[in-house]
Amino acid sequence: MRKFTYFVTAIISVILFYFTFESVVDVYRANWQLPNETDQESLNNRLVLITQELDTPFWDKVSAGAKKQAEKEGATLEVWGSYGNNQENFLKQIELAIYSKMGGIIVQGLDTDEFKELTKVKAASYGIPIITVAHDVPSSESLRKTYVGSNQHLAGELIATQLIDDMGTQGEVILMLDSRKEFYQEQRLKGIQEYLKKFPKIELIETTTENTREQGIALTKDILNRHPNVDAFIAVNSNFTEDIIEEIERRSKIGPYYIYSFDDNRASLSLLKQGKLDGMIEQSPHRMGERSVMLMMEWLNNDTVPLYLDGYLTDIRMVKALDIQ
């Protein structure tokens, strides 16, 4: 009996000790993880990349490149922007960036007065350098430091060359632009026009509409109705690519039409892979991001002053549907 009592007592105390110890360990282990403290110095070079088209493959690549470069340079980079070409929000972001006294602003160019006003007056008065990326705005109107991106004029020429190669020197070509006629679109258009001038049998038809999906589809409908013999489409604003293809598919086969676009649209690449798109200008978004941050840092560190105003051009190349398939 005595032995039994001892045994039970020992067992109970072992159990109690074990659980108490366990919970003590638990309490100590449940440590509160506060966010890391920061050192103020890392905030010297605060850069911001602002785009109208967040979360598109093209801009994702740009921001990835920019972030990588920023990390390398010891700067902090934030990516702001608006979704789906929301201009109002986009401009607000730029304004906010200016008021927040960012070290530098890398921005997708927008060829509007408000944009120019912001960059020219506000940014300049706050002394914030601005570099346009991917889409340019004339330097004299925006006081941007430089432009990093594709040579849009050349891109236009490349498309035109491809068109001639594919279609021959005769036919009706529809050029789809948006009604805002942004600078980069103008340049692309100019490139195409200049090249195609040499072929008088090619008829260029410029169409413009607002940069929305409904308008794009409506415009395509309208074109197809008015110009039944159209041979080729060039989506100078690549956002129209999907609309064109969707509308054509609704009516007939896509095969006979020559359709060209640029890669700064989320659907371009997949359409090209499906063979619905005949050719696409591929730009170097990653490189653009890298280069823009690099140049901005050079500017901020006074390494290269002034920057080359005409811009630093990145590679472009023509990708044909046949190449991918």
Binding site: L34, P35, N36, E37, T38, Q40, S42, L43, R46, T76, E78, L96, Y99, S100, K101, M102, Y126
Partner: peptide, 20 residues
């Protein structure tokens, strides 16, 4: 209040106040 995760936002915030 700065910490590693909000330092950028907070810096902007403080600058905004300065701007104001």
């Amino acid at each position: 209040f700065k910490n590693a995760e909000n330092e950028l936002a907070l810096t902007s915030y403080i600058n905004l106040i300065d701007s104001l």
